[in-house]
Structures are given as structure tokens and as C-alpha cells.
Design a protein around this nucleic acid. Structure first.
Ligand code: MN
Ligand code: MN
Ligand code: ZN
Ligand code: ZN
Lengths: 141, 141
DNA sequence: ACACTAACAACAATGCTTGTCAACAAGCAA
DNA sequence: TTGCTTGTTGACAAGCATTGTTGTTAGTGT
């Protein structure tokens, strides 16, 4: 994801307005590697802006997604995760106990559909989810 | 997934009761490769049993899942899919337009987390989703 | 400063899934 | 068979994440 100033320019170019709410969300997302839920962004934004609404956070996240500045991930945890890392092609490690998400770079080759199963189908995107437990949660079993 | 008679035995062994509703669902799932939603199972079951409730279908699907007879997949389509194919280790091809799901056998090697990213983490399961479009939907673009 | 209109907060509504509970029926033993 | 025990059913309400609605506010280009 680009920086706040760059995003400001991009938003204006698209006819989108840059509000204090949106700037707050830009700042929260910049460099965040935690893959936060929208709700958690909302909670953190509310610390500074008590009147910001959840809808506004959703709205801004979707706008960022439409501009390719974030990716919205559904890892099957019930709520969606926002990933500002769109620069590196990567997959995800998910702790099914605490819900923490970690990036995994794409280092394995050969991840594609065998040709005979590709028949009648065009693949646009591959999502890989490694599910398991981080050591912190593993110890507490 | 095992056959209806085998499932009947297994359910009774577990202290679960085998009702006409459950047998109807067993029959619907047997050999179904469409990865149906619970709602679609419900609709089909209702054809024969007009009074069956959606809750009952969810209940039975979850019981089957607990016994390892089906897998419940969340492919990010809004509702969950039921997969009676637990015999073959496989991944999925999803058409993001029509929602159709197809199996893809695991033929690629090397699908694992690079060692240095595996640190502090134990991987239990890998889910791969290939998203794209089937030819039928591709033509209508 | 002005006018135009996107974005805001508040609130209601949606869609999928689960909780509650009284009536029911499957399974088992006598 | 018969009756008892207990899991299951169906109807309805509730939960949770996300989106729709709406009158009002405020960002933007002029
Ligand atoms: Mn990521
Ligand atoms: Mn499958
Ligand atoms: Zn954990
Ligand atoms: Zn399709």
C-alpha cells in the first residue's frame, strides 16, 4: 500500500474525497502486518475519532481495494481481513486458535492446476491458506 | 463418504439416531460432486419432505463432519459448501461468476511452508483455492 | 466564498448460521 | 409388542458480519 500523501493524490484523481476519517484509516493500515479485521480497525480508529462509524471503515477499505491498494482476505474466520501488503505475492499462515495471520512468500514452484483439470476453466488467482497453531497456542493445548 | 447403510450403523454406534430426514440427506450427498450449499441441500430435501427444516440439514451436516464423513468448506462465497469426497486429498477450482466448484487432485509437489517461515508454527492443513471462470461464464463476459 | 456532490453518522435491514424449547419419535430392553 | 429414555425435529427468534438508507455535513474545484 502506498503512503498517506500518495493515497491522497490517488483518491482525489479518482474523484474520491480525502476526509479525516479516511486519513486515519490510511495511517492505521500503513505498515500493519497483522491483517486486521474491519472491526479492529474501527476500534483503533475510534480511539482518536469517537464518532467514526463502522460503515465508514468498510467503505474506505472497499475503496482501497478497488484501487488495488489493499487486498481483502476471507480466511474463513468469520470476518474479513485487510492486507495492505499488495507488493509481495504471498500466501498465509493462520492460527486457528488465536486467529493470528502471518505472511508466507511464494517460494514453491509447480503450484498450478494439472492441465487436464484446467479444461473449460481460466484461473485468475490462487489462494493458499496454511492452517495450524502458533507455538504460543500449541503450548496451551 | 460412506453409503447410507454404513452411515446408519456409524450413527447408531455413536448414540445418534437415524431419522428419515437424515437418511434423505445421506442419499442426497452420496456421490454428489457439486459441493452443494446447505440451503441447496435443504431445497432438494424439501421436495420429498416438505416439513424438513433448515436447522435439521445443518445439524446433520455437522454430525457428518464430526464423524469425518464430509468436509465443510468455506470458499468465501458467502455460504458454506458440503463436500462428501473425503477419500481423495484434493483442492478446489471456483468459478467466481456462477459459483460452481470442481475438484483438483493434489499433483503438485513442494507445497509447503519454507522452513524459516515455519518457525513458531505447526501446520495442520493446507487449503488451496483456484479462482477463475468456467468457459460457460467466460463467454458471457 | 460558492456550489456541487461525495462522504458522513446513525440506524435499519440483509444473509447465513446457531440457540431455544416443547412436542415427537427412534432405539432399546423387558 | 409395549413403554421408557433420550436424542431429534420444526418453528421461531437471535447472533454476527456486512450492506442499504437517509438526512446532514463537509471536501473540492472554481
Ligand atoms: Mn498478507
Ligand atoms: Mn471437493
Ligand atoms: Zn495462535
Ligand atoms: Zn461459471
Amino acid at each position: 500500500m502506498k503512503g498517506t500523501e500518495a493515497l491522497t493524490t490517488i483518491f482525489r484523481e479518482q474523484g474520491l474525497r480525502v476526509t479525516p476519517q479516511r486519513q486515519a484509516i490510511f495511517r492505521l493500515l500503513e505498515g500493519d502486518v497483522s491483517h486486521p479485521t474491519v472491526e479492529s480497525l474501527f476500534d483503533r480508529a475510534r480511539a482518536d475519532m469517537p464518532t467514526i462509524s463502522l460503515k465508514t471503515v468498510y467503505q474506505t477499505v472497499h475503496d482501497l481495494e478497488a484501487l488495488g491498494e489493499v487486498r481483502v482476505l476471507d480466511l474463513g474466520t468469520g470476518s474479513v481481513r485487510v492486507d495492505p501488503n499488495v507488493e509481495d505475492d504471498h500466501h498465509h499462515l493462520l492460527c486457528t486458535t488465536c486467529g493470528r495471520v502471518r505472511d508466507v512468500p511464494v517460494e514453491f514452484d509447480g503450484l498450478n492446476v494439472p492441465i487436464r483439470y484446467r479444461r473449460d476453466f481460466t484461473v485468475d488467482d490462487v489462494q493458499v491458506i496454511f492452517r495450524g497453531h502458533c507455538d504460543h497456542c500449541f503450548d496451551r493445548t
